[in-house]
């Protein structure tokens, strides 16, 4: 059966829980792979710092080559930290950039810079979104990626000092959470100004692999919720790992969709949502380190069908795609949705 909706229409309807011609497929987190870079002629590390190349890799790669219903930039979660003073180490051709040195110590009092939007790779990602909107905006949803306030705050001082301070002197981390929120909001608003239809918040450090449900509720969720309200466009919230104990809290953030990994018990979450009258679509949960990386296209189609049967509303890798993922496997996610 051939598609009768554009990816944009399909995803917007899927996010609202309305019927679609077939299940929608996106990649909530990054989907640039080596084969995709070869296919479109735009590669890391250049694509991290060049808006045209970023728009080609994410836009052409996502919309034309893979056939996703949404395209997004950028690829890593270090842009906010870099703009706020972190030293960055290039990941070269094969990997994403990483933080070599955190800009702050726990006892510092950070100050949000007025010129945030001109710093580091922030303008590159914003420009890439505007280029993608121009070229693909009528066909697919264009999304800008930002870190969650909790995760940005972590990246400012480092995970270990952050988590220790969170436990012992929680007052000291408040200014960093505030700064994370400001950075995320400023970045997100700039994407929207540049034409983004939606925002993806990746809050990987707010995972229950890291912190307790209580800490999530006190220190991560309120900032996510405020950020989502202030952005004012549909927001997909991605958090890694097990989330079963906070799936209702996540729904309460007001996000348009929650992107999860296979560690989450999706049928249980769907049942809990139904009972409370919550209509939040669940996005996931094709394993990026399992079947998507190592499986055959047929196994991936089976995984898509299985995810749909378990109640997944919108198909996506459960987290960032590994860069060595075969292109045929990414395409197989779309094929799996077409014959579902």
């Amino acid at each position: 059966m051939s598609d009768t909706m554009t990816g944009r229409e399909r995803l917007l309807k899927a996010l609202k829980g309305e019927p679609t011609d077939r299940p929608s497929v996106i990649s909530a987190c990054q989907y640039a792979t080596y084969e995709l870079m070869d296919a479109v002629g735009a590669s890391w590390p250049e694509a991290h710092r060049d808006a045209e190349l970023m728009a080609t890799l994410s836009g052409k790669g996502g919309a034309e080559v893979i056939g996703l219903d949404a395209i997004r930039a950028p690829y890593c979660q270090t842009i906010e930290a870099e703009a706020l003073g972190a030293k960055i180490k290039s990941g070269g051709k094969t990997h994403i950039p990483s933080i070599a040195e955190h800009p702050y110590k726990v006892d510092d009092v950070p100050e949000f810079p007025d010129d945030f939007l001109t710093r580091g790779r922030v303008p590159v990602a914003v420009k890439a979104v505007s280029l993608m909107k121009e070229k693909y905006g009528d066909q697919v949803l264009v999304m800008g990626g930002i870190g969650g306030p909790f995760s940005i705050a972590n990246s400012l001082i480092g995970i270990t000092p952050f988590l220790k301070a969170m436990f012992k002197t929680p007052d000291k981390i408040q200014p960093f959470l505030e700064m994370g929120y400001q950075a995320a909001l400023t970045f997100g608003k700039a994407y929207i100004e540049a034409g983004a239809d939606a925002i993806v918040i990746e809050d990987m450090m707010a995972s229950l692999d890291m912190i307790s449900p209580k800490n999530y509720r006190q220190l991560a969720q309120p900032y996510e919720k405020k950020l989502i309200a202030d952005l004012g466009v549909p927001v997909i919230l991605h958090i890694c790992g097990k989330l079963d104990k906070v799936m209702l809290d996540i729904a309460d953030t007001g996000c348009a969709g929650i992107s999860v990994e296979s560690a989450v018990n999706i049928p249980a979450a769907k049942a809990a949502y139904k009972e409370k009258g919550i209509r939040l679509p669940i996005i996931g949960d094709i394993s990026p380190s399992g079947v998507l990386l190592n499986g055959t296209p047929d196994e991936i189609k089976d995984a898509v069908h299985d995810a749909l049967a378990r109640g997944v509303d919108i198909i996506s890798p459960g987290c960032a795609a590994a860069p060595s993922t075969p292109l045929a496997n990414l395409k197989a996610m779309v094929e799996g949705a077409k014959d579902a």
């Binding site: 988590l163 220790k164 012992k168 890291m210 912190i211 097990k242």
Partner: peptide, 14 residues
């Protein structure tokens, strides 16, 4: 067992 999380474990280590 999911009873403790990383901040707790770091404090035990301290």
């Amino acid at each position: 067992e999911g009873e403790y999380f990383i901040p707790e474990l770091l404090s035990c280590a301290d």
